[in-house]
């Protein structure tokens, strides 16, 4: 199966407006690595035994189904790393925070939008039938499951990037000639940080 088709079990996170401070509270963002953050996912909320992450019926889930405005707030990429480390490959939501969306694509976590009705239907299905098989087809732009199908919404550019699993930095470095040309013509009066620290400490001393 190519990267345009994904299937798995879902987990209903029946909440809107889940900010990245909830996905991984700041005090858990101390490991200077990209991996090993799965245990910190929803670090505060999972203390509650009734929180969906603690429900064994969803322990095999690889698709997180959240509500609207998922992962707004802090830019912490730890939010994406924690979701991935826990075992999710896809997050379906009605809308996403801008920075999280970019972080997710770069880290190969698929952020997929659907409609408000789509989210409601997915939540309802997963609450009643936790082991429903969810099938995502990025080419046909549809999310299918027992009980219905809802649209899979993704900007074509990001979709292509996800399907081809392109690495942004490698691609940009292919255009290094364009960057050289741009820099050569750049305004020489623009600010630089050269000697900034030294100049500041000198100014600081002279004020004492």
């Amino acid at each position: 199966m190519g990267r345009e088709r994904i299937q798995g079990y879902g987990m209903p996170l029946v909440r809107n407006n889940v900010d990245t401070d909830q996905i991984i509270p700041a005090r858990f963002c101390y490991q200077p690595k990209r991996i090993g953050h799965g245990e910190s996912l929803f670090g505060n909320w999972r203390q509650d035994p009734s929180f969906v992450l603690n429900d064994p019926r969803y322990s095999d889930a690889t698709i997180l189904v959240a509500g609207s405005e998922f992962a707004t707030g802090s830019s912490r990429e730890y939010a994406v790393w924690a979701i991935k480390d826990y075992g999710f490959q896809v997050v379906i939501a009605e809308s996403f925070g801008d920075i999280f969306y970019k972080n997710a694509i770069i880290n190969d976590l698929l952020p997929l939008q659907t409609t408000e009705e789509g989210i409601e239907l997915l939540w309802e299905t997963l609450i009643h039938a936790p082991k429903s098989n969810i099938q995502i087809d990025l080419e046909k732009e549809v999310i299918c499951f027992e009980g219905g199908s809802v649209p899979a919404i993704m900007d074509p550019h990001f979709k292509k990037k996800y399907i081809l699993n392109l690495d942004d930095i490698s691609l940009t470095l292919e255009d290094v000639g364009n960057i050289d040309t741009y820099e050569a013509a750049r305004n020489p009066h623009l600010a630089t940080t050269l000697n900034r620290v030294e100049r500041f400490s000198h100014a600081g001393r002279s004020n004492e």
Binding site: R34, S75, R76, E77, V80, I99, F100, K102, N103, I106, N107, D168, I169, T172, L173, V176, I179, E183
Partner: peptide
């Protein structure tokens, strides 16, 4: 505001 992977992108390419 950007994420850590984008920081890496800017450090490496200034773009």
């Amino acid at each position: 505001g950007i994420g850590t992977s984008q920081v890496e992108h800017v450090l490496a390419t200034q773009t």
